[in-house]
């Protein structure tokens, strides 16, 4: 058994950096595309709605691991030479956009109909109606679910290890193999995930409770 010194710990923190980056990119990219998916999902055109529904269904109905593989090997098949990093970022963005799109679709539809009617009666057009009136309210409604998904996404980044990406979990595995102290190493890695995810989860639940109270 080897010791767990500063070097080993730094290596794990280095993995954490990639985990955080991956989650942030997935969340931001997924957020941007997710809004588009949500808007398409509630648009007037039945064809557009069906397309968005299919997209959401595809990503919700398959394991994230498969999505990672498909994107990772898929872009390579297309003859595009991208780094593992970019491929994984694309996969997480697509994955997150489908889930966030579905969460936000529900929140948009949860905004009372009277809000759209008032906006229409005032002559507001689509962009203003969405940007000024509906989306701010929908995003607020969606906060607990959005935070819940962010937590899932952070934990889901560990799957990127499969395609050779050294994020937090994979870094832990490497150190564990070097030092033969799996329990200690994965204890530390688990604690790091927990320190990030638990406050977020807690915050989401608190928000949800506060909103439920306010709605009464």
């Amino acid at each position: 058994m080897g010791p767990i010194g500063a070097n080993e710990f730094l290596f794990i923190l280095h993995g954490l950096k990639w985990t955080a980056l991956l989650a942030i990119i997935g969340f931001i990219g997924g957020g941007v595309f997710g809004i588009l998916i949500a808007l398409t999902r509630v648009s007037k055109s039945p064809a557009a709605r069906a397309t968005a529904a299919a997209y959401i269904g595809l990503f919700q109905g398959t394991p994230l691991l498969m999505q990672l593989f498909v994107v990772y090997y898929g872009v390579a098949l297309l003859g595009i030479n991208v780094s593992a990093w970019l491929a994984v970022a694309i996969a997480f963005t697509l994955h997150a956009s489908a889930f966030l799109g579905e969460i936000w679709r529900g929140s948009i539809q949860a905004v009372p109909k009277g809000q759209t009617e008032a906006a229409n009666a005032l002559g507001l057009h689509y962009v203003s109606r969405m940007k000024d009136v509906i989306l701010p309210q929908a995003l607020k409604i969606s906060m607990p679910a959005t935070i819940g998904f962010l937590v899932q996404l952070i934990k889901g980044t560990s799957l990127a290890a499969i395609v050779g990406f050294i994020e937090l979990a994979r870094a832990g595995q490497i150190i564990s193999n070097q030092t033969y102290r799996p329990l200690l190493v994965f204890g530390i890695v688990g604690a790091i995930y927990f320190i990030i995810c638990w406050p977020l989860s807690h915050f989401g639940t608190a928000l949800e409770k506060r909103m439920a109270k306010a709605a009464r």
């Binding site: 009372p112 009277g114 809000q115 009617e117 008032a118 229409n120 009666a121 005032l122 002559g123 000024d132 009136v133 701010p136 309210q137 607020k140």
Partner: peptide, 17 residues
């Protein structure tokens, strides 16, 4: 027409945010 017509609803429908 919407520029010429104002409407007031039973439930106010003010923008809460």
């Amino acid at each position: 027409i919407r520029r010429e017509v104002g409407m007031v609803f039973q439930n106010f429908n003010l923008f809460p945010h």
